[in-house]
């Protein structure tokens, strides 16, 4: 195990998470509850796909095999994607979309707060750019959690149920393995324990104001990073890669 591998592993994981979540949000463009929020959510989708491009490009550079952002996005199979399962979950309704976003944003921000000080300059640079965007994402999703939680009985119930449904998918954002532990020790990556602590503190503060409840789930779903995904992932990739895979090798 070496630093190159650790950088590659982290960049790919960040790139896959932001790509798949950005993809999910992009499905909603044109279908939002009101124009103003349609636009807001698409801004977040754009930020995430933009970040993904930077992470995947970095992964390609450190790998040294001439793979581009698009090679990673379009020419890998499901088992090669390392994203957490949380980001694959479908857009059931606004409450679910926001809850998924809120959980991701809280962790995303805590991760980036450490990565801005990464010993690897490329990682630190991407994190510095992304962190401003993610601060806004968290503000947006937090405010909506509060509005839903402290809005109507219907919205409270939808938000609460969504949190409970998503709870088993939270832990995977801070699971460690040999290489991520190495990356943290080398100052390249992040300390997962600290991220977990900070993200939960952030979430609890918002949820208290929202009159909503979320407890760490005793049982949780592992596997995303190892290439084992939910049933949804196959459809995401089938759709995303369909044009490119039907006519491989072309420039678009």
């Amino acid at each position: 195990m070496n630093k190159q591998q650790a950088i590659f592993d982290l960049a790919l994981w960040m790139g896959d998470n932001t790509l798949i979540l950005g993809h999910r949000l992009s499905e909603l463009c044109g279908h939002g509850p009101i124009l103003e929020q349609d636009i807001a959510l698409t801004n977040i989708a754009l930020d995430l796909v933009g970040q993904s491009r930077m992470w995947l490009s970095l992964a390609g550079e450190v790998e040294g095999k001439d793979r581009t952002e698009d090679d990673f996005a379009y020419y890998r199979g499901e088992r090669d994607f390392t994203n957490v399962k949380l980001v694959e979950m479908p857009n059931h309704h606004w409450g679910y979309v926001i809850a998924r976003q809120f959980i991701y944003d809280a962790h995303h921000l805590a991760i980036l707060e450490q990565l801005v000080d990464s010993s690897d300059q490329a990682i630190a640079d991407i994190a510095a750019k992304a962190i401003k965007e993610v601060q806004y994402h968290l503000r947006f999703s937090s405010e909506w959690m509060i509005r839903m939680g402290d809005g109507t009985a219907v919205s409270h119930e939808k938000a609460q149920t969504s949190l409970e449904d998503l709870a088993p998918y939270i832990k995977s954002l801070t699971l460690t393995d040999e290489i991520s532990t190495f990356a943290a020790a080398e100052g390249i990556g992040f300390d997962a324990g600290r991220v977990e602590q900070e993200a939960w503190a952030t979430m609890q503060k918002v949820l208290e104001e929202a009159t909503l409840k979320l407890e760490p789930s005793e049982y949780y779903h592992k596997g995303g990073k190892q290439g084992l995904h939910t049933e949804h992932m196959g459809f995401i990739l089938a759709e995303m890669q369909s044009v490119v895979r039907a006519m491989p090798g072309n420039t678009w």
Partner: peptide, 25 residues
């Protein structure tokens, strides 16, 4: 949007469709 054949095309199309929401607004 979900099938755009490169990430560059994807963000461009996403931004474009978003603009249309803005123009409607």
């Amino acid at each position: 949007i979900t099938r755009a054949p490169s990430l560059r095309r994807k963000v461009a199309l996403l931004a474009k469709v978003q603009d249309e929401a803005g123009h409607g607004l």
